[in-house]
């Protein structure tokens, strides 16, 4: 079969040597794609199971197997998870946690990015004596287990009367987001041509002028990366939420855990899965929409600068 495809001998006296390019169904490819597909199944299975479970009624769950698609699709569990599920004495569903999470998320993301970007800019372009030392401490601090800092922060928040409030948690997220974000921005601003900064100085722009008029407009992509990083990170946080807020201000992850792992009442697996999906929805949407930028964000911590 391959012989007929070769060029006429008159044009190439010696045919090409070596093995033919492999066909699409070579053993190598079957192995390669087979493995990848198999692994994909492992990765997709939990999402699939969650979705089908959340669309079934409880009787169907008790009878059937978790992999079977729902016979009677019902959105009842979703409604219940959102508006009726109970945590303790409150039975207004996950909607409250969602609201809390949004209220925590927006100021945390804005504040942490504003502070870290200016900070990274100062570190990249306006080094002063000791600036690198503080930055090194900050980066080392990122490796310290949160557990060793949690209680002193409780005391500090109490001192400034923010313990248990949303703003206290916003502050905590700003502090703990600072190492990675500062690193991200510092590396980005360092990668911009230094001559641009010099040109702006010759043009008479100062610290803030260069930041707002020259650097900021050039750095939209890195701000988006930082935003993705922070939105998913803060949304997914459990530890700080459970420690620094009170039940009325619990973020969604904490409330979700309380709903699903509550020991009272009959377990409603379909509602639980709907609630779990609801909580995972925000980061999932961000992930699927942002694509490469998400990857860039998480890789930012891994590349040294």
């Amino acid at each position: 079969m391959a012989e007929t495809m070769s060029p006429p001998k008159s044009r190439l006296l010696d045919g090409p040597r070596g093995s033919k390019p492999k066909s699409r169904f070579s053993r190598r490819n079957i192995f390669l794609y087979g493995t990848l597909l198999l692994v994909s199944v492992y990765y997709l299975l939990p999402l699939y199971v969650m979705v089908v479970t959340s669309l079934k009624g409880m009787p169907e769950i008790r009878l059937g197997n978790i992999f079977a698609p729902p016979v009677d699709i019902t959105f009842e569990p979703w409604v219940k998870a959102w508006a009726e599920a109970c945590t303790g004495i409150n039975c207004d569903g996950l909607s409250r946690g969602f609201g809390n999470s949004i209220k925590i998320l927006v100021p945390s993301v804005a504040l942490s990015i504003a502070i870290a970007s200016v900070n990274g800019y100062a570190l990249a372009n306006w080094k002063f004596k000791g600036s690198e030392v503080f930055f090194t401490i900050l980066i080392i601090g990122a490796f310290i287990p949160y557990q060793t800092m949690i209680y002193p922060i409780v005391i500090m928040l109490r001192e400034i009367k923010l313990m248990g409030s949303l703003w206290g948690l916003v502050l905590v997220h700003t502090v703990f987001g600072m190492p990675i974000l500062t690193l991200l921005f510092r590396n980005y601003f360092t990668s911009l041509p230094e001559e641009l900064f010099k040109a702006a100085r010759v043009d008479g722009a100062g610290f803030w002028g260069i930041y707002f008029r020259v650097m900021l407009p050039m750095s939209i992509p890195i701000f988006v990366v930082a935003m993705i990083l922070q939105v998913t990170g803060i949304w997914n946080d459990f530890l700080f939420g459970v420690i620094y807020t009170k039940p009325e201000t619990y973020p969604m992850t904490v409330q979700l855990n309380n709903i699903v792992n509550s020991v009272q009442g009959v377990k409603e697996y379909n509602v639980n899965m709907a609630a779990t999906l609801l909580t995972g929805l925000v980061p999932l949407i961000i992930y699927f929409v942002s694509g490469k930028l998400f990857v860039r964000g998480i890789a930012a911590g891994a590349v040294k600068g």
Binding site: P193, E195, L196, A199, M218
Partner: peptide, 13 residues
């Protein structure tokens, strides 16, 4: 002074 740079250093935006 006025200065001209190797990489031109024009403000891209």
């Amino acid at each position: 002074i006025g200065m001209v740079f190797q990489s031109y250093a024009l403000y891209p935006q």
